[in-house]
């Protein structure tokens, strides 16, 4: 059988990660790697950007890098 996506890039999935701990955009991209989601690089960037704009997470700098996070 062809390998199907075992990870889904959804608003709920992103929300769960950002509630757990602050993450950079790169951290998030690692959680939703294209080989896991079956999306293209461009789709991943576009969808993740839309989700983050909707969630409008808090931001803070840790080690000079911008991290997003959410509180419940």
């Amino acid at each position: 059988t062809p390998s199907s996506s075992d990870v889904q890039l959804t608003e709920e999935a992103v929300r769960r990660y950002l509630i757990r701990k602050p993450m950079t955009t790169k951290d998030l991209l690692k959680k939703f790697q294209t080989k896991r989601t079956g999306l293209s690089s461009e789709q991943t960037v576009n969808v993740l950007a839309q989700i983050l704009k909707r969630l409008n997470p808090e931001r803070k700098n840790v080690n000079d890098k911008m991290h997003f996070y959410l509180t419940e």
Binding site: K26, S41, V45, K53
Partner: peptide, 20 residues
């Protein structure tokens, strides 16, 4: 590859900078 990851992160940061 890590360079593709870097490119994606850069593209995403750019998208978000425009917005935020």
């Amino acid at each position: 590859s890590s360079s593709e990851a870097d490119e994606m992160a850069a593209a995403l940061d750019l998208e978000l900078n425009d917005f935020m």
